[in-house]
């Protein structure tokens, strides 16, 4: 049963547009799928390889800007951004990997954080190229209806999931986990850790960038504050994975569902809406303290708490 669960979910999702949900619900579902892709991508690097990144907004934003700039300067459809972002993101990941992956632990996290900020400030200042804070607007939308957007992001999510599944069950995946568990031991066993970490970073970066390019096409407008922010993208990415469960296949998806719904609910509440980051921060602190491996990682612990509670009440 458990083996076929992803397939079942995929099939159910394929049928979703025929149910005739309202545009708003379709929008939420698209966002959930997009965040699942970003979360799964982060999970390759952070969860499996153990390199916590605070700068995934850099990949997301560069992906989005690749699509946007193709449209803005070359006048071709922003959908070309999807394949183009793979090339751009590979290059970017190699550069970032060259600089950051020689660092370990907290140093790496800080370096990625700084790189995310560098990308934001650069996008703000290269006004001729990126239009700075004016942002890039796609004047003609491809579809008004959300169905095709939904299928495209569903396809991307399915591909991402399969890639991660295949990679993690291959030798490569074992190398990644070995690096996470003990880098020195991995190195002494003959694993070229920097090389495999670079592969992990590239995979993670490309998948995040694809999500970014999709975001540009879907939302039709980007500016540096929307696609490069530290809290709203980079940290929310970390939260998606932490809430769902790091280093699990389903974790990021669960996390994305929870985080997107939570964000929508909190934002729609009067008065509290402005404080959504406070609530996110408190949730983050709570998760770190009590559910460090997320819902998918600690579900046994959750069950235990509930069972104890039930027993006490009955």
């Amino acid at each position: 049963m458990k083996k076929y669960l992803p397939l079942i979910i995929f099939t159910v999702l394929l049928a979703v547009p025929f149910i005739g949900f309202s545009t708003y619900i379709m929008h939420i579902l698209i966002l959930v799928l997009m965040w699942s892709v970003i979360g799964m991508a982060w999970n390759i690097l952070g969860g499996y390889t153990g390199q916590v990144s605070f700068g995934h907004a850099a990949f997301f934003g560069v992906g989005a800007y690749t699509a946007g700039i193709l449209y803005q300067h070359l006048g071709i459809s922003a959908w070309w951004g999807l394949p183009a972002s793979i090339v751009v993101l590979t290059a970017l990941s190699l550069v970032i990997g060259y600089i950051c992956l020689r660092l370990r632990g907290a140093y790496f996290a800080l370096a990625t954080l700084a790189l995310g900020e560098i990308c934001r400030v650069t996008a703000e200042n290269l006004v001729d190229f990126t239009r700075g804070n004016l942002g890039i607007l796609i004047k003609e939308r491809t579809w008004v209806d959300k169905t095709w957007y939904f299928y495209i992001i569903l396809f991307i999510a399915a591909v991402t999931y399969s890639i991660i599944k295949i990679v993690m069950e291959s030798k490569l995946g074992y190398y990644f986990v070995a690096i996470r568990e003990d880098q020195d031991a991995a190195e002494s066993l003959g694993i070229d850790t920097t090389f495999y970490k670079t592969i992990s970073l590239c995979l993670s970066g490309i998948l995040t960038g694809t999500a970014g390019a999709f975001y540009m096409n879907y939302m039709g407008y980007i500016d540096p504050g929307v696609v490069f922010p530290l809290y709203d993208i980079s940290i929310v990415t970390v939260m998606v994975v932490m809430v769902g469960g790091a280093a699990t296949y389903g974790g990021p998806v669960i996390g994305a569902v929870i985080m997107v719904f939570l964000a929508e609910v909190i934002r729609s509440l009067p008065h509290i809406g402005a404080a959504h980051q406070t609530i996110f921060g408190i949730i983050l602190i709570f998760i770190i303290m009590f559910l460090p491996n997320g819902i998918a990682g600690d579900y046994l612990k959750l069950f235990k708490i509930f069972r104890k509670h039930n027993r006490a009440s009955s």
Binding site: G105, V238, A247
Partner: peptide, 30 residues
């Protein structure tokens, strides 16, 4: 308390300070 928590992800405390930063800056805005 977080020092004693076992988890897969390293740098739990650093992520916790990020959470704290989010709370503080957002509360100040509100």
């Amino acid at each position: 308390p977080v020092m004693k928590v076992e988890s897969i992800l390293p740098h739990n405390q650093v992520i916790l300070t990020v959470g704290l930063a989010m709370v503080l800056s957002n509360l100040a805005t509100v």
